[in-house]
Design a protein around this nucleic acid. Structure first.
Length: 616
RNA sequence: GGUCUCGUAGCUCAGCUGGAUAGAGCAUCUGCCUUCUAAGCAGAGGGUCUCAGGUUCGAAUCCUGACGGGAUCACCA
């Protein structure tokens, strides 16, 4: 039920009792906002009562409608095909507007059951810069953080940085071999891209080496000896690439040596590793800043990858895990519909899940959160099922709090992004692109001409970001998303700038108002139109929308609401004059309404991580 | 093959705790700026909600099955 309609619900319960001698609960009533093509504010569905009351929908509707008019809560009603459309009186709407225009949004949305959350999002590798997939992750994570914390929960954010392993060693080796000591500073390249370039260079050099080997005697010999029946040489060498890297490649062997050196804490290797990671972090921070997101803490895999072994021990004691003859440790999850999974290698080293078990344990010690939210792509659904089920079997208390916020992969109109084919959309490029388009549009419009260069740049940043962020967040996280780069910079229609524009129009009106907005008093209750009622109703719905978005961890729900609100406002703005309304009372009411809508748009967009300018 | 997931207009998406004639945006076409910012508003065309059953007074929404796309099933992360 909608809280702000509690009066109506209460009256309906009384009416059911007096008219039909029937005692009912709130949950049995379905009330929705009336569809635009019918007259009325709210609609009660009558069908569910036809059988139990033994009356026709019209009879039931008339009894309820007349009784409600008696109570004074509604002015009139109509019944169409089993739907009772009720028009609430003006007092209700004006009072509600008065209420919400004098009350802070914050006080209306505070939950009465505050929980403690930890949201993990972003979680990049340190061998290359951020791409479009990270952007979706980051925007979802940040928005969920904002929605939950604004709703009154205690929320911390964190990320796990994969700063170790063979990938970063590839970048390190390529830099060592081919850079001549170049640095981001000496080249002027953004530092995470600089490191990424060496990762790419490694692949290029490795491919050259591999191609050369393929034409060598040894290479062609391997093909003849190892090929499958009728396998073409291209197919063979594609398949054999990994083996070649691991066993024959000079570059591969050097990279693996580097990894071993890293693991044995070789000082020179560690120093290089630290230097290159530092470059990557500096680059990431720049991107985070542009995206306007922050993290309360960072977990580095180099520090956590050895964790979790004590949990394995504990699991063995509890007989949750079993040890094979070769010393590898396993868990059997076939009873919950999953497989048998390894949790510790035969050589005693960790696998992915070992680390995750250790990390969650560490986090729980540090945070004692009620909910641990992992913003991770849905390709890891299975992994998180395994993680949760394993924790359950270990009977660890936080197993109940694990939540995998899985989002669908981002694809381009041409298909999946593939780093090998160079179709990955780089995060910084994309951000720059959307700034450029925003700047170009702003110049054409010319509304910002009187402002300083600095002010203009802030506004363009905000408009560009509103376009990019909204474009991504309006799609439900769990759905796979087709990202069309051209449409992502659109600023018309169902976009961020469209909502910003509604807000900017309100600010413009508020700047131009002649007299101060005064509180709405009982004396000046006057008729307001259906658009105004509908707009007030939208604002009243806001706490429910926000809580729903929080409960479902679904920013898209909020995003679509905000679009609808902006759309309704744009139409209202077009249909009615605000500053030149017929009389002072009406001007005051409309100003109150505009101000209130503005506050809701601002709060909602901010919960999507979008900050809005006051002009554009 | 097993498991999970998605399928709504030409395209991208809403709507899904069951409610009225399924909605937006983009694209195409037509109007509206001497009046609060036209990144706007109004209008036109565009649909077998993948298909088939079932539950129900009522199904895009819930259940079952089929078909189609995607993910996943490593001593990778």
């Amino acid at each position: 039920m909608q809280d702000y309609l509690h009066d109506l619900y209460d009256k309906l319960i009384l009416v059911f009792s007096s008219q039909f001698d029937k005692s009912i609960t709130i949950e049995e009533l379905t009330i929705s906002t009336c569809k635009k093509e019918f007259e009325g504010d709210f609609t009660l569905v009558l069908f569910p009562w036809v059988k139990s009351l033994g009356k026709s929908p019209d009879d039931i509707g008339n009894s309820i409608g007349n009784a409600l008019i008696q109570t004074g809560i509604i002015d009139k009603y109509n019944i169409i095909k089993g739907f009772l459309n009720m028009s609430l009186n003006n007092h209700f709407w004006i009072n509600k507007l008065s209420e919400i225009s004098n009350q802070s949004i914050t006080s209306r949305i505070k939950t009465n059951k505050p929980l403690k959350y930890l949201v993990e999002y972003c979680s990049p590798n340190t061998n290359k810069p951020l791409h479009l997939g990270h952007i979706r992750n980051i925007l979802i994570g940040w928005s969920v953080y904002k929605i939950l914390s604004e709703s009154g929960h205690t929320v911390n954010t964190t990320q796990v940085i994969n700063d170790r392993g063979i990938a970063i060693c590839k970048s390190m080796l390529a830099w060592k071999l081919y850079s001549d000591g170049k640095t981001p500073e000496s080249t002027g390249i953004k530092s995470d891209h600089f490191v990424g370039d060496y990762y790419v260079l490694f692949e290029v050099k490795f491919r050259e080496e591999y191609a050369q080997w393929q034409n060598s005697e040894e290479g062609s010999g391997s093909y003849y000896n190892l090929k499958k029946e009728g396998e073409a040489s291209d197919d063979f060498f594609k398949r054999y690439k990994n083996d070649y890297f691991n066993t024959k490649s000079s570059l591969g062997i050097q990279a693996k040596e580097m990894l071993l050196k890293w693991e044995s804490s070789d000082p020179e290797t560690l120093q290089l590793w630290q230097k290159m990671n530092e470059w990557v972090y500096n680059g990431f921070e720049e991107s985070f800043k542009k995206l306007d997101v922050k993290f309360d803490s960072y977990f580095y895999e180099s520090q956590t990858y050895l964790l979790g072994k004590d949990i394995i021990e504990e699991g063995l004691k509890k007989n949750v895990f079993t040890k094979e003859a070769d010393n590898s440790v396993w868990i059997d999850l076939t009873d919950v519909g999953l497989d048998r999974k390894i949790v510790l290698r035969s050589d005693g080293t960790s696998v992915y899940i070992t680390q995750d078990l250790g990390t969650i344990n560490l986090r729980d010690k540090q945070y004692h959160a009620d909910k641990y939210i992992y913003v991770v792509a849905d390709e890891q659904d299975y992994h998180f099922k395994v993680l949760t089920e394993t924790l359950k079997k270990l009977q660890l208390p936080y197993s109940q709090g694990i939540h995998h916020l899985n989002y669908g992969m981002v694809e381009l109109p041409s298909g999946r992004m593939k780093s090998r084919e160079g179709t990955v959309v780089d995060a910084d490029d994309l951000i720059q692109e959307v700034f450029d388009v925003a700047a170009k549009n702003a110049e054409e419009r010319g509304e910002l001409s009187g402002l300083s260069k600095n002010e203009v740049s802030v506004i363009i940043h905000q408009i560009g970001m509103s376009a990019l962020k909204y474009f991504i967040l309006k799609v439900q996280a769990k759905k796979r998303m087709i990202f069309n780069p051209e449409e992502s910079v659109d600023m018309q229609g169902h976009t961020g700038p469209y909502i910003v524009n509604a807000y900017v129009r309100i600010q413009s009106i508020l700047r131009r108002k002649v007299s101060e907005i005064s509180e709405i008093s009982e004396i000046n209750i006057i008729d307001i139109n259906d658009s105004e009622k509908s707009l007030i109703n939208s604002c009243l719905e806001y706490p429910d929308i926000l809580h729903e978005a929080g409960n479902q961890l679904d920013p898209a729900h909020l995003a679509n609401y905000l679009y609808q609100l902006a759309k309704d406002f744009h139409k209202y703005y077009n249909d009615y004059r605000i500053l030149n309304a017929e009389n002072i009372e009406l001007i005051n009411i409309r100003l109150n309404l505009c101000k209130t809508i503005g506050l809701h748009l601002h709060h909602g967009m901010s919960c999507l991580g979008i900050e809005m300018p006051t002009r554009m």
